[in-house]
Design a protein around this nucleic acid. Structure first.
Lengths: 205, 205
DNA sequence: AAATGATTTAACCAAATAGTTAATTTAAAT
DNA sequence: ATTTAAATTAACTATTTGGTTAAATCATTT
């Protein structure tokens, strides 16, 4: 393990990510970000002018990897089976590494939908791809006649929701036992793949 | 339509709900709540001592109806088909009336998970009910061997996610066209019911 | 080592905001 | 009508907080 020396700017970004993702832009305090980075608060403004600018940077750096991961799988899957398996597998891996990311993104998106517009432009997500894949297989009579858009939303929902709703699921379903929740998450990839395939394929075993 | 005279307390609650749900506790301003209620800011403190206390009241009043709706359907459904149909139908109706409610609840839950503990106690949600129902039908060999807990989470996820993610779905999938999104939501109840049944029943048509 | 520019800090400022107080108005009771 | 209590308001306070400034320190160049 190489001991990497973090530059001040990197320390700020790291700390700002942590605080913004946990508390949201309104709940975050510049002083807390500075404290967590172990630097003087003025340095935040020296490097990033304002809270808003710092936040924009954090949001970009958080959102882009997600968009990239999704995009990559969608582009590179030759058929619907590969797409489902690849998407769910990679997405859950990403979410397990960043469990608070979806809530952060959804929250700031709800508060300020405009902010996302540029982000969407810069990520080259191609929604027609899944429609193509689904249409092909549908023609071959292997698929039930579900609207592809609903299927896309379903797959994303099944992956993302448990992470967004962790506290409520843990409280309601797992008697506040975090280990049980983690076990649930560990089973999740295989379950979603099986569940979705079972739903959309005709004569699925 | 009876013109009901709202008491000051009711006016405050109504306005506080609106502001807190839109902006979260950190983003909300007591002055804005007072303005929207058409009263002096001091009255907020006169009736509810502090922002936190006012928020607690709003959160309870928002959360309980959701828990009640879910609970009622779970209790009253004699079989798994009725449960799925009843749950999805009633839950989507509730969400369409209060589209920002899930995001509000999930956000404040993430910020302050402890706050929910009392709420959970007071709602008498019985998670074993669906396990019973699913076990019955599973014994009768009508159901595939999915873990009931995952199925519960799936159904809730499929209902709630589109509302939490409205801005991102609208942006990514519907080219920022709200009408298309609403059309999507209108189809959602029937789609989820068909999708879930197709996934879990053996030989589902 | 002197000079120069970049980085960092402590002290400060101004605006925003939750909460308080004391006076005023309204409503109810006698 | 007078008294009393509740409801409402305007003005104020204390604190938090994003942002600024000017001085100090560190690093680099000459």
């Amino acid at each position: 393990m190489v001991k990497k020396i973090e530059s001040t700017e990197e320390k700020i970004i790291t700390s700002a990510k942590s605080v913004f993702i946990r508390k949201g832009i309104d709940g975050a305090r510049m002083q807390e970000i500075a404290d967590e980075a172990g630097i003087n608060k003025s340095l935040l403004h020296y490097y990033f002018r304002s809270k808003d600018k710092l936040f924009d940077r954090v949001f970009s750096e958080s959102f882009l990897p997600v968009a990239k991961t999704i995009s990559r799988v969608f582009e590179s899957s030759p058929d619907i089976n590969t797409l489902i398996e690849g998407f769910v597998t990679n997405y859950i891996i990403l979410l397990r590494k960043n469990p608070h990311l979806p809530h952060f993104i959804l929250h700031e998106l709800n508060r300020n939908p405009e902010r996302i517009v540029e982000q969407i432009q810069s990520s080259n997500f191609n929604k027609t791809r899944i429609v193509e894949l689904l249409s092909n297989d549908a023609d071959a009579n292997k698929l039930k006649a579900f609207d592809p858009i609903h299927i896309v939303v379903n797959i994303i929902a099944l992956c993302v929701f448990p992470f967004v709703a962790q506290p409520i699921l843990q409280g309601f379903l797992f008697n506040d036992n975090e280990a049980d929740f983690q076990k649930f998450i560990n089973e999740r990839t295989q379950h979603i793949i099986a569940f979705v395939k079972s739903a959309i394929f005709i004569n699925h075993s």
